[in-house]
Design a protein around this nucleic acid. Sequence first.
DNA 1: ATAGGGTTAG
Length: 609
Amino acid sequence: MHHHLLQSLRFCATHRRPSDGKTLHAHIHKIGLDQYGALPNTLISIYAKCGLIKDALQLFDQMPHRDQVSWASILTAYNQSNLPNRALSVFAHSFFRDCLQPDHFIFASLLNSCAALNALQIGHQVHAQFVLSPFSSDDVVKSSLVDMYAKCGSVDVARAVFDTISSKNSISLTAMISGYARSGRKSEAIELLRSMKEANLFSWTALISGLIQSGHWVGAFHLFIAMRKEGIKIIDPFILSSVIGASANLAALELGKQVHCLVLGLGFESSLYVSNSLVDMYAKCSDIIAAKTAFNSIVRKDVVSWTSIIVGLAQHGKAKEALVLYNDMISTGLNPNEVTFVGLIYACSHVGLVDKGLELFKSMVEYYGLNPSLQHYTCLLDLFSRSGHLDEAENLLNTMPFDLDEAVWASLLSACKRHGKTQMGTRIADRLMGLGPKDPSTFILLSNAYAGASMWENVAKVRNLMATMDVKKEPAYSWVHLGKESQVFYAGEPSHPMKDQMSVLLKDLDDKMRKRGYVPDTSYVLHDMGKQEKENQLFWHSERLAVAYGLLKSVPGSVIRVVKNLRVCGDCHMVLKLICSIVGREIIVRDASRFHHFKDGRCSCSDFW
DNA sequence: ATAGGGTTAG
């Protein structure tokens, strides 16, 4: 009798049919078998698989005799419901009250929770108990350990455990590959994958996605192509969302479009992960229109869909639209998350809606019960700074519940310069000097702040400090996308075949700009040199080279899309505003922190970045 | 009953 019931229950679990499971449960309860043999434990795991954690827990609490199977089932239930912290706390509170010893199933579940929570300390403790237990040679638990250590960033410990696994299978290998890839150890990850007899889609996804997470975007694309060449069938959409993310990070619109085509060809356009990453990709590749189209085509939008488009609009300076969409989102009954508020406050600071931004911040904490992170405070700081509320900004910095880094103070210092607050600027500069600045752009700010207050001794101090510190500046470069071609330019005179034409064009533009009153702002050049030399430095900034090349080679009238690795300097920002109106072209620059849409002599960032 | 891969900020 109960054999038949068990089979029916298992069918409900594998086919995710919670209502049939509940009917069966009612029947089992009626005939008095709900505490019989394996039935209650099976019921728990069915409820877990169907996401009905409450029902699972109720059964678990009512069981008079819980065994190890019951415990393994409830721990798995919590893990599958994305509540790994509950799993650990329930275990810590009541497991030993049942007078049981953990078995290999329980160890594996606990390690799974630790991995999800990045809880290395607790993971260590579980590891120690496992080693002392009679199950210490279990390979499945060992592969959970590998995964836990890898996810917590202890890749070498993961490898040490991995080496003790007696028969390594594709699961333990994939966990190890993922660990290497996510911590950027590319060659070790590839070597392991190549050691597999038959690497499957899981292992390739672990490799490629991990490398994308650690910033190896181009390398990941080469591997993706290699995977396709080896004929690995893409039977689920996991890898696609990662690869779309890589296109977004590279701001490679053409590449992103090709992956989009692949998505359509394989029929994965209805995957929410995929469509959400497409929205983000188009926004990051500066095609905000395509991002909106991708967003509108999502049938069942979730928080991430809404957040992606809100953040995209905010970064493109379309603050009002972002706020309108937020209201639309709320009216569908969805709750915003932490990331949504980053986008919203960012949007408010863009259009000077100080009160609205503060109101949103308040609602995030008080109404939605979310914990503000450093990013939220940074957005608030930006909100105050842009609108000239510098005292509030400084007050905020002094009361923030975070350790403040150089970038946060530098941001306030830059606002002081913008709003002509010389005295406050020198006060902030003194603080920054005490912090031991490292970033080259901070030194420019410091030097300008002291120079603006005629404190020449301090200017000299900044320069001396910089000289002794041997500040390493990441070389500035920009690239321009022209259909299938993209061209990179480093700052300085280019050694490009089209150098002469570019030079002639830039000189011509320079003449026209000066007729409109342009005077180069040499305060953005840090090196000690004469005025003429400084102007010459600015003349060859990488974003100008990329724009010049774009103007020469692009289809007339088309939008010129440029990406820069660092932030656009203030002088170049002025220059690009002038150029776009002189040549009557739209220029979109994505720099290290935001998008600048230059059109008709203006920029979407409202001159604050 | 236990083990591996994916999206939004920075």
